[in-house]
């Protein structure tokens, strides 16, 4: 075992970690913003409204993330029209190509999670809202969406962890993310075990933080689903002493 090479390359790993975090956070943010309208449309009973979002979800859930990323990075670069347009400023950079692929991918999975939650909304809640005279948009804003987000939280936490791990694919297209850094260290110092286990430990740490974060969020937002905390009841012994 030779961890000297790892220690001298720690700055490279930290830079890689920073790139990984940037990619994951931005992809999750963009993906979530995109997922809400897609989920709402996909949950619609009107087939004309639902068909396009459903096709989007089906495509991005039905193909590997690596294939999607290669299509955007290598595939789009093949078309002269794209290369000569202003869009090339974005597609020229591996970084943006990866970010676009990750965002669309996580948007599809998130939309599917939300769609399920929206469709499972208890009819009683909706009926009560109607009885109170809320309009349809108000019902969505006040009742359906908040309740769906809460119920989707555990599944979404899982998707966030998958996105973190999926982001390692960025290392394949010249981006020096955490995995890219590990590949550089490995190929310079020929220590595959040490270089990849170090990247693995970093991923573990981030995952640990995410698990903790989602536990807190669930604790906070799903408090109404928890069993009530027991209230201190005076014991018989204490009562008898009185």
């Amino acid at each position: 075992m030779d961890f000297d090479a790892i220690i001298s390359n720690l700055p490279l790993y930290l830079k890689g970690l920073w790139v990984t975090l940037q990619l994951v956070i931005m992809a999750l943010a963009a993906g979530f913003v995109l997922a809400v309208p897609v989920a709402l449309a996909a949950a619609s009973r009107n087939l004309l409204v639902a068909i396009i979002p459903k096709a989007f979800i089906y495509f991005f859930r039905g193909t590997p993330l690596l294939v999607q990323m290669f299509m955007i990075y290598h595939g789009f670069a093949q078309f002269d029209a794209l290369r000569e347009s202003f869009l090339w400023l974005v597609f020229r950079e591996a970084y943006w190509c990866a970010l676009i692929a990750f965002s669309l991918n996580t948007a599809a999975y998130t939309a599917e999670i939300l769609r399920g939650a929206i469709e499972q909304t208890s009819f009683g809640e909706v009926e009560a809202a109607k009885a109170c005279g809320m309009s349809k948009p108000t019902i969505y804003r006040r009742i359906v969406l908040p309740s769906s987000f809460r119920r989707a939280l555990p599944a979404y936490g899982n998707e966030v962890i998958f996105m973190l791990h999926g982001s390692a694919l960025a290392g394949v297209i010249t981006i020096v993310d955490l995995f890219g850094a590990a590949k550089i260290v490995n190929s310079r110092h020929f220590v595959p075990f040490e270089s990849f286990i170090t990247a693995g430990v970093f991923y573990l740490c981030v995952t640990f933080f995410l698990v903790w974060l989602f536990k807190r969020l669930e604790h906070h937002w799903n408090a109404y689903l928890r069993p009530r905390e027991t209230i201190a009841v005076p014991t018989i012994a204490a009562t008898a002493a009185d």
């Binding site: 290598h74 670069a77 093949q78 090339w88 010249t174 020096v176």
Partner: peptide
Amino acid sequence: IKRYATQDEAYLDAVAGR
């Protein structure tokens, strides 16, 4: 510096204009 796993991939990105 952009680093590639193979020389062929570097050619591909040179042709693409990256």
